[in-house]
Simulated assay, not measured.
Amino acid sequence: MSSSSSRQASSRRVSSAQASASHALAPYGWDENWAAAFAPYARQGLLPGRVLRVDRGQCDLVTPLGTVRADTEFVVPRDPMKVVCTGDWAAVDPDGDPRYVRTLLPRRTAFTRSTSSKRSEGQILAANVDHAIITVSLALEVDLGRVERFLALAWESGAQPLVVLSKADLVPDPLGLSYLVEDVESVAPGAQVLPVSAATGEGVEVLAAIVGGGTSVLLGASGAGKSTLANTLLGEDVMTVQAARDVDGKGRHTTTTRNLLVLPGGGVLIDTPGLRGVGLWDAETGVGQVFAEIQELAADCRFHDCAHEAEPGCAVRAATEDGSLSVRRLESYHKLLRENQRIVAKTDARVRAEILKDWKRKSAAGRAALEAKRGGRGR
């Protein structure tokens, strides 16, 4: 076949694939808005595809022509926030060996955390997610601070968070389970808290209905039961499951990559490896949404820039004194704000200057208080 005939045949395949894209990719979340965003690349003869998984510079994508493997060499920006990620929609070569991902479509949402790297880089765990399912195992005492941390990242991502209390069958007392749900609800304003048991089926139908619309990502520590939940929703054992240790409830990383899977009842699920570290990444808005009641109380503080520490007329501190706001909750709020500020300061000179100014102010106030205590005398 001549090169001209080959190009014509390739063009016909692309045109046919593009025409069927809405049908073939619909189960993966393709819609009119994605089609409109992809239109310029369609005119270049590229194929739309959604990233199913990423592995060492290559990725698997589902396209109108089926699942293909492509190299991400052309999408290697200096900004780690723009690398190819599971859940991305991309423009990919229609053929070739190797194929290449040429570009990514603008993300609607992105779940991001800071890495343990000293270079203060962000890491995208999943892209274009509608529901962030924070999985918390009831095999252990619930860490409310960790739940708050996950929620802050979820709200910041633009996805709707949902807290799933997995292994609910391990709490046989209905009243005890109700108390646990209430405890988590108290730190999760605006998010549904759902006890679920893959063993008994409790809560599974409700969870399936939620994830049946759009794309959901499963998040949580190793041993939280994410892979078991994924298998339950998929109706088959797709994800490997290993038992958590009886001593501390921790599990090994049974999921080592982020995988995008189509659910039989509709919707798309991204399963992720267990997360040991959940560092914030420019999540001030998300922190504010998690601690919405503190934000509301702050409106009644005497000073508009009240830090809720030792200022007079602080409505937030007053709430801790009368018991309407827990001290733990306020301490967690301060902790997450400070952490987020440190992360932002590493890349924002203005924030660094503000932190230094605040440190000097507090140091001066401390020295003045010490001098006053000593009656104005020196050492």
Rank of each mutant, 00 (worst) to 15 (best):
R113W: 08
G265D: 04
A299S: 12
A152V: 01
D237W: 04
R379T: 08
D348Y: 06
T232L: 13
G176T: 08
R69P: 00
R317L: 15
G176K: 10
P48D: 01
R146P: 08
S20L: 13
R78H: 12
F303V: 05
V316Y: 05
R146F: 10
E205C: 09
A353Q: 13
S166V: 09
S16Y: 00
T347C: 03
K346N: 12
G286W: 05
D60G: 11
G203V: 09
E185K: 14
Q18A: 11
P94C: 00
A307C: 07
T256L: 11
E121K: 12
S326D: 11
I294G: 02
F291H: 10
D130K: 05
L151F: 06
L325E: 02
T109L: 04
Q295D: 13
G375D: 08
G288C: 04
V206C: 12
A230Q: 02
V268D: 04
Q295W: 09
E331A: 14
L52F: 07
S117N: 13
S326H: 06
H308I: 02
W89F: 09
G212L: 04
T200D: 03
V217W: 01
G366D: 10
L177I: 04
A39Y: 00
R7H: 15
W281A: 10
P273Y: 07
E371S: 13
R107C: 00
A345R: 05
V290Y: 05
G190S: 07
A315L: 09
S3K: 11
V76H: 12
G220R: 08
D88E: 07
V241M: 07
A24W: 00
T200V: 06
M1R: 11
V76R: 15
A37K: 14
E296A: 15
D173N: 10
L151M: 10
I134N: 07
V181D: 02
D60E: 15
E202I: 12
C301D: 06
F38A: 04
E236T: 14
T200N: 04
E121W: 08
G145C: 08
A152S: 13
Y179A: 13
E185Q: 15
V76E: 15
S117H: 10
D183G: 01
L280Q: 03
L105F: 00
L207W: 03
A307I: 05
W281H: 14
R12V: 12
R108T: 15
L263Y: 04
V241H: 06
T135R: 03
V327F: 08
L260N: 06
V278I: 14
L52S: 10
R377F: 14
R258E: 08
K357M: 11
L170F: 02
L233M: 03
G190K: 07
K250Y: 02
V193G: 10
Q341S: 13
L180A: 10
V196A: 07
K346S: 12
S114P: 09
A319G: 09
V51M: 03
Y333A: 09
A199D: 14
A224D: 03
Q341K: 10
L194Q: 02
A199G: 02
N33D: 15
L194V: 03
W30M: 04
T347I: 11
D246K: 11
A188H: 07
S114Q: 15
V62H: 12
L138E: 01
L370C: 02
V129T: 14
R12I: 08
T215M: 05
T232E: 12
R12G: 09
V142E: 00
E185C: 13
L370T: 11
L263Q: 06
L219C: 05
